[in-house]
Simulated assay, not measured.
Amino acid sequence: MHPTDRPRRLRTDGVRSLVSETTLAATDLIAPVFVDATADERVPIPSMPGHERVPVSEAVERVEEVLATGVESVICFGIPESKDAHGSGAYATDGVVQRAMRAITAETDAYVVGDVCLCEYTDHGHCGLLEPGAEDDPTLTVRNDETLELLAKTAVSQADAGADMVAPSSMTDGQVRAIRDALDDAGHTDVALMSYAVKYRSAFYGPFRDAADGAPAFGDRRHYQMNPANRREALREARLDVAEGADILMVKPGLPYLDIVRDLRESFDHPIAAYNVSGEYAMVHAAAEKGWLDLEAVAFESLLSLKRAGADLIVTYFAEDLAAHL
């Protein structure tokens, strides 16, 4: 008795690629770039092998390296010269990201995304203005409505500097509407908005905080980032951002939240982004250094899973490593 259905017929080399249900291309990827106003030369990031902070003077060169691999988009993060309670470096006209963006957009063809948050620029490391006494009382948190004005100023300053897209990441209620209104009022109606619509308070962010010098000086971010236990809340957050004018919806982190990526894909017509975060990158590198995993193969499979779950675009530290093989 022979089987009547033989799926293995379509797994041979000649037809395998023809029937592939999911594809991954270099143009699906966004590469993070860290620009450091305190550095005179490139500074390796120990917890993220292969990545560096670069001085503003080398921002263009760094982006050209990304473009040479076939990746067309970058997202810029900044390390300022100084920090204060209001995160004023985030929206300064001559801020580190703003200076880098002017050079990058003037001298390259990269599609430039700006991360809009205050945590890299505040001396307390939180994503907005703090309630009085928050440093001594863990029940206190970021002042939501007062923070909106600063996020909007940050987005406009990045658009003024040439950003093609801004990406608010602070999980501040109402941030999408505040930023969209401010961009439109400033004449930046064509600047796109990719919202970190579903950003969990995750344990996978550690290496990024090392890279961007953005760890909280006290407390944590559980009062404004999402509880990893919650799934239905993700749809509520995304629905609010759509109503406020988001062009793209992002899920962060990526791999531990594939179910959320799928939920958003099935619920919205908007493009869906996933952030393959620093902890996901670092753990694969650590296992590969031990000889336990094949770095390239596992990285590819990880990003393919995000595409299969429904992501249209992926922010990933693997972008350059994989692009040449895609």
Rank of each mutant, 00 (worst) to 15 (best):
H188D: 03
D213I: 00
Y200F: 15
V198L: 09
R236K: 13
R209Y: 03
Y200M: 07
P216A: 09
H223S: 11
A203D: 15
S195N: 10
P207M: 02
H188A: 05
A217V: 10
R177I: 02
E233L: 14
A229M: 06
G219Q: 09
Q225K: 09
A217K: 08
N227S: 13
G206H: 02
A178F: 02
K199S: 05
A234E: 13
D181Q: 15
D190K: 14
R221S: 10
R201W: 10
F208H: 11
Y196N: 08
A203K: 12
A182K: 00
R209F: 02
A182V: 01
S195C: 12
G187S: 07
A197K: 06
A234Y: 12
R222F: 00
M194H: 01
G219K: 06
V198A: 10
G187F: 05
F204G: 01
H188F: 13
D184A: 12
R180I: 07
A234M: 13
G206Q: 03
N230W: 08
A178S: 12
D190P: 11
A215P: 11
F204Q: 08
P228M: 04
A203F: 08
A186S: 14
A203Q: 13
A186K: 08
N227R: 07
G187M: 07
D190M: 11
E233Q: 13
P216R: 08
G206R: 03
Y196G: 06
S202V: 06
L235A: 12
G219N: 09
F208D: 05
A182S: 05
G206N: 04
D213H: 13
G219I: 10
Q225D: 13
Y224K: 08
F218K: 01
K199C: 05
G206V: 01
A211S: 11
R232Y: 00
M194Q: 10
D185Y: 01
I179E: 01
I179H: 00
N230I: 00
Q225G: 12
Y224P: 07
R232Q: 11
V198G: 04
G206P: 02
F208C: 04
Y224H: 14
Y196P: 03
A229L: 11
R201A: 14
M194A: 15
L235R: 13
M226K: 03
E233S: 07
V191M: 13
G206C: 04
E237S: 10
R231D: 14
V198C: 08
A186F: 06
I179P: 01
Y200A: 10
A182F: 00
G219S: 10
R232H: 10
Y224S: 08
A215K: 12
E237C: 13
A211W: 07
F218L: 03
R232N: 11
R180E: 08
F218V: 00
P207R: 02
D220H: 02
A182W: 01
Q225R: 10
L235E: 11
A197T: 08
F218T: 00
T189D: 15
M194F: 04
D185A: 15
M226F: 09
A192R: 15
D220N: 15
Y224M: 09
I179K: 01
D210E: 15
H223L: 14
Y196F: 15
R209K: 14
D213Q: 13
D210V: 13
S195V: 05
I179F: 01
G219M: 09
Y200I: 05
D184K: 06
Y205C: 06
A215M: 13
H188N: 03
S195M: 09
S202D: 07
D190Q: 15
A197V: 05
F208G: 02
